[in-house]
Simulated assay, not measured.
Amino acid sequence: MALEAVMDKFYIEQLTIIGVGLIGGSIAARLKREGAVGKVVGVGRGRKNITFAHEHGLIDEVAMDVQKGIERATIVVVAVPVKQVETVLQEIKLSPNSELILTDVGSTKGDFKRIIERVMPERAGFIVPGHPIAGSEKVGPQFADANLFQGKNVVLCPLERSKATSINLVQRLWESCGSFVSKMSDDKHDKIFSAVSHLPHIVSYALVEMVNRRDDAEDLFDFAAGGFRDFSRIAGSSPEMWVDICRANHFPILDDVESFISSLEKIRELLRSEDYEGLRKIFDAAAIARNNWSSKQ
């Protein structure tokens, strides 16, 4: 494997990114800036994104074919939409490059683990699922940012058979991007991010949809200001991607939707009974929790 340690500095000869969008492009930009990679190969079937990434120096080489792109790779980062992951892994499975290390950037990990078990269990030792907690509602390599992961969390969910050397290499990749790396089970990961990422997107979509279907929607949007803008920002994210996430993390999200509905029902009953003291207690508890969290960011 083409891996070197120069004064303990992370360095790999070739990184292959399958799906050079915001996340993949930002990984490439940071590692190239750090001098942590010899060559970055971008794999993609969408000519527009891959061409942009090449022309703007995010990647050094374009491969329209997965096999071609990974034949000399040290690490392969799968950064494609959820519904494309299994097809990509089927192609990676055929590679004679048996020691390439594989990771991903998806926000659901249980489904990724199940696909690995179904498609390529024999390579499990070289696979380390990952999730960078960074991003934007914007997509595409034109928004790539070498500082996107600086000071941000990255969660690794190693498989039972992931080798220590594989885990270490993927961890060092993310640390080279400026990230703080933690490890947890895929089950714990999916429950956490259902509550603090997936549910908020669903609620944001639901709010905008509710406003948009009202008869006075035009007036509502005309007078909406900062609060609505902040709350609804993530409703500008890719609907296709978020439907795929809902499918992949179905049960944890369903549990959290039910819990959220219960909270709304409690507020509804307090409003109906004009129990404003009860309402204040809920708002106080939420404000304290939110401010405590914010102070640690």
Score class of each variant (00 low, 15 high):
Glu4Gly: 03
Ala5Trp: 10
Lys9Val: 02
Glu13Ser: 11
Glu13Asn: 14
Thr16Cys: 12
Thr16Val: 05
Ile17Lys: 02
Gly21Glu: 12
Ile27Ser: 09
Ala28Cys: 02
Ala28Arg: 02
Leu31Ile: 12
Val37Ile: 05
Val40His: 03
Gly44Thr: 11
Arg45Val: 15
Gly46Gln: 14
Lys48Trp: 15
Asn49Tyr: 15
Asn49Lys: 15
Ile50Tyr: 13
Phe52Asn: 05
Ala53Trp: 04
His54Ser: 13
Glu61Cys: 11
Glu61Val: 10
Val62Met: 10
Val62Thr: 06
Ala63Leu: 09
Met64Leu: 14
Lys68Gln: 13
Glu71Tyr: 09
Glu71Asp: 15
Glu71Lys: 15
Thr74Cys: 13
Thr74Glu: 14
Thr74Leu: 03
Ile75Leu: 12
Val77Gln: 11
Val78Thr: 12
Val82His: 11
Gln84Ile: 08
Thr87Phe: 09
Val88Ser: 13
Val88Cys: 07
Ile92Lys: 04
Leu94Asn: 14
Asn97Trp: 05
Ile101Lys: 12
Ile101Gln: 08
Asp104Gln: 09
Thr108Pro: 01
Gly110Tyr: 03
Asp111Glu: 06
Asp111Gly: 01
Asp111His: 04
Phe112Val: 14
Val119Ile: 14
Glu122Gln: 12
Phe126Lys: 04
Val128Ile: 15
Val128Glu: 12
Gly130Leu: 08
Pro132Glu: 07
Gly135Phe: 10
Glu137Cys: 05
Glu137Tyr: 01
Pro141Leu: 08
Asp145Ile: 12
Leu148Lys: 11
Phe149Glu: 13
Gln150Lys: 11
Lys152Leu: 12
Asn153Trp: 07
Asn153Glu: 05
Val154Phe: 14
Leu159Ile: 01
Leu159Glu: 03
Ser162His: 00
Ser162Met: 01
Ile167Arg: 07
Asn168Trp: 10
Asn168Tyr: 06
Val170Ala: 06
Val170Thr: 05
Gln171Phe: 00
Leu173Arg: 09
Ser179Phe: 00
Ser185Ala: 01
Asp190Trp: 02
Ser194Ala: 14
Leu199His: 01
Val203Glu: 08
Leu207Gln: 06
Glu209Arg: 13
Glu209Gly: 14
Val211Glu: 07
Arg213Val: 12
Ala217Leu: 10
Asp219Ile: 15
Leu220Phe: 11
Phe221Ala: 10
Asp222Tyr: 11
Gly226Lys: 06
Phe228Thr: 09
Ser232His: 04
Gly236Lys: 07
Ser237Phe: 06
Ser237Pro: 09
Ser238Arg: 04
Ser238Lys: 02
Ser238His: 00
Glu240Asn: 04
Glu240Thr: 06
Glu240Phe: 06
Met241Gln: 03
Val243Tyr: 06
Asp244Glu: 14
Asp244Met: 03
Ile245Thr: 01
Pro252Val: 00
Ile261Thr: 01
Ile261Tyr: 05
Ser262Phe: 14
Leu264Gly: 11
Glu265Trp: 01
Ile267Leu: 11
Arg268Gly: 02
Asp275Gln: 01
Tyr276Trp: 13
Asp284Gly: 00
Ala287Cys: 05
Ala287Pro: 07
Ala287Thr: 12
Ile288Asp: 12
Ser295Tyr: 00
